[in-house]
């Protein structure tokens, strides 16, 4: 079992933020290029995957939705396991969603417990920038907040108009990947962990367990 520098092809990204800021819409816009104007509290959103090229390297981004469990602050610790990047999202027309960012960030740091919390990659997305006339949080205010948190990258986006979404997620993938090279892995990357594949009907998997 030689384990040189890890070549991780899969990046786990989680999106946090208040209900209604557009977490699911952002994921959907980025991965499926779709937007629905009808708001419903998240049902049926799980995680979406997308392959992206980052500097000649193909990585699979797995973006995890909160599945609505954030509504009563009931995201369990399992949700945060092995996250490579945490995307914080708020609604630029809703100042409460901006004020709650601190508690979402704290929640992440408590639950995910990264070894080096000061350098864990966060990215802030201010969604609904198309609703400029209703803006309640200025770009400057958001940027100041980001600076105070060790320079979190900040993007203003619109899931509805597909503004900046692509470039924001590119940056997210880049940040998640950069973490890997910092060698700040919180847990060993196991060559022999097993995923149960429903479609293989539990048959022996190639390379499976090394025990």
């Amino acid at each position: 079992m030689s384990s040189g520098p890890r070549k991780k092809a899969l990046l786990k990204v989680i999106i946090l933020g208040d209900s209604g800021v557009g977490k699911t819409s952002l994921m959907n816009q980025y991965v499926n290029k779709r937007f629905s104007n009808q708001y419903k509290a998240t049902i049926g959103a799980d995680f979406l995957t997308k392959d992206v090229m980052i500097d000649d390297r193909l990585v699979t981004m797995q973006i995890w939705d909160t599945a609505g469990q954030e509504r009563f602050q009931s995201l369990g610790v399992a949700f945060y396991r092995g996250a490579d990047c945490c995307v914080l999202a708020y609604d630029v027309t809703n100042s409460t969603s901006f004020k709650n960012l601190d508690s979402w960030r704290d929640e992440f740091l408590i639950q995910a417990n990264p070894r080096d919390p000061d350098h864990f990659p966060f990215v802030l997305l201010g969604n609904k920038m198309d609703l400029e006339q209703n803006r309640a949080v200025s770009s400057k205010r958001a940027q100041t907040w980001c600076q105070s948190k060790n320079n979190i990258p900040y993007f203003e986006v619109s899931a509805k108009e597909a503004l900046n979404v692509e470039s924001a997620f590119q940056a997210i993938a880049r940040d998640a990947l950069a973490r890997e090279s910092q060698d700040s892995q919180d847990f060993p990357d196991f060559p022999d962990q097993i995923r149960l594949d429903p479609n293989q009907n539990n048959r022996q998997q190639g390379g499976g367990c090394n025990c």
Partner: peptide, 27 residues
């Protein structure tokens, strides 16, 4: 289970949530 047996209840709860189940802990 990697990270221990406590992962399993959370995994089933996530499926429940994905299908619309509403969760309130610490209530």
């Amino acid at each position: 289970p990697l990270y221990g047996c406590g992962e399993l209840p959370q995994c089933f709860c996530r499926l429940c949530a994905v299908f619309g189940g509403l969760y309130a802990l610490h209530l």
